[in-house]
Design a protein around this nucleic acid. Sequence first.
RNA 1: GCUCACGUAGCUCAGUCGGUAGAGCACUUCCUUGGUAAGGAAGAGGUCACAGGUUCGAUUCCUGUCGUGAGCACCA
Length: 634
Amino acid sequence: MIEITLPDGSRRNFAHAPTVREVAESIGPGLAKAALAGRIDGSLVDLGRLIEHDAHLEVITEKSPDALGIIRHSTAHLLAQAVQRLFPGAQVTIGPVIDNGFYYDFAYERPFTPEDLPRIEEEMRKIAAEALPLARTVKSRDEAIDFFRRLGEEYKVEIIQAIPASDELSLYSQGEFTDLCRGPHVPDTGRLKAFKLLKVAGAYWRGDSGNQMLSRIYGTAFLSDKDLNAHLRQLEEAERRDHRRIGKAQDLFHLQEEGPGLVFWHPRGWAIWQVVEQYMRRVYRDTGYGEVRCPQILDVSLWQKSGHWDNYQENMFFTESEKRTYAVKPMNCPGHVQVFKQGLHSYRDLPIRYGEFGACHRNEPSGALHGILRVRGFTQDDGHIFCTEEQIESEVAAFHRQALKVYTDFGFSDVQVKIALRPDKRLGDDATWDKAEHALRSALRGASVEWQELPGEGAFYGPKIEYHLKDAIGRTWQLGTMQVDFMMPGRLGAEYVDEHSVRRHPVMLHRAIVGSMERFIGILIEHHAGAFPVWLAPLQAIVLSITDAHAPYASQVAQALVQQGFRVQADLRNEKVGYKIREHTLQRVPYLLVVGDREMEQGAVAVRALSGADLGSMPLASFAARLASEARPG
RNA sequence: GCUCACGUAGCUCAGUCGGUAGAGCACUUCCUUGGUAAGGAAGAGGUCACAGGUUCGAUUCCUGUCGUGAGCACCA
């Protein structure tokens, strides 16, 4: 007798061990039809799985949050089967579910190209229509190796060989195709209806650039065509937000062949930059930083001492003069240490904080470049705090509060916080690392934030807090960071005198809030889809003359607002006002001020908001007051 | 850096199965002076990324270089 407990607490008894499907059938034919898989005592299984002991069972239908993952995983198998039908000799490797879809990596005599995708997708539809049932079998590790070796699937063999010999492995078969897989899967391929292959790409076997390049096919699958189409529309919407597209459309910046990864800022883009920079300068000022400015190039000997020569040379640019080699700075920290070293500091002076809008150059791999989000020349809001060990935690906590305040002011609420912990290759002893990691954790705990930990991802000199934000299509980019460094001050000879007149090396905290100005502005563009709030907008208002007769008044209005510190221009072109409105609306100017005879007579402006809302005619002073109230962060 | 794709007018793109190219928008000039998302006409504008090769002839085919895009690797 087997007793099954359902999620609602009710119990059902079976004379023999039932399958999940049989339990579902016993509840009702509707449920049996809708069932995709089951969850026995918390673990997901197939519909065909026998339940051999008393258990809690949940029948997974399309309504379950687990359904999508199962569908996508099964669709990845569908893709693999289709590829093997069409391209005999293609070997399967791995095909996991990822955010928003799945991929499958293949080893084949040639890479797949976008032209192959429609054919493959067609074959997938064929297999789905065949409604092939999926069968799960279990083999020992050695049997499984034997099985895949006979099929010529050397990559599968390699995967299995990494698994302990005692483990049992499950294999899933649908028609002629069998794949190693943990499961669960849909009961038959007919359950897969809404899918689409999206792109091809190269990917290294086991993610190691020393290994063979495999051919990866990305796809996505949903429970219904409606969901699939909604997702595809969302991708299109994300493309419209792309900072590269908006940057061009709004004349913010450009990049060109002669300067890969180097940004040319145009007046409108630089206006945004200036707002961000002045805002961040105020943050430096308000939080006790002295702003500094250090040289762009310094003799390599300094970079040899700092460790950059040994650890970072490949990413640095060099230049020469009079038989000396200089490095273009990739980081600001060595410069700040030089500032600290001028004169002798007492422990009473600590913490000492320096901030810089430091322009750095890093020779990033060409394939890493991406618009203004990943560049070779960039400016950091880079600060360094020289302090004692005891001061670390309060400094970190204060920084964290400030960083979140800044992100909030710029309109970001979805900020992911991560702590990158000690890497295998590191300097310093474990006690020091314990201390540093503890300081980061307890500072974050004190601020009651949730964070994710990334073991092994810290810098060689210390752990770091990372602040991540998402771009329009869901890629996350690290902006801010707070790093604890016990090494650099010693290497570069930074010292202070403690209360016992002993010279000691301070701890150095590396910190940035927006990270790179370029990246941050890129993210801002995408976040706001180019429609910036008034305080950030490159152009806050534009004055539109209706006819030539109103041009002098329009200029006068624009000039008056400019003199009050607003970013305002006049559009005096001989065009109809509707044309001008269309153009500046597309440029996402927050306020359009129309001036004609009525406004001229009354010293007024007719205000139209970007939304299209007509705010009516108002005295220029009223509009200026409105602008002033909106020209602040938040 | 690796794999694949792409590079045509200022922008967005079409095109040439090998015979030196076209649209829309923008730009210039003229007409129009019009009250809330495109008024009209005319004109100008391209060494088809760059360098080789094949060919009677290359923007088109091939090779290389540079750049861009997607992904991978990288991101101290």
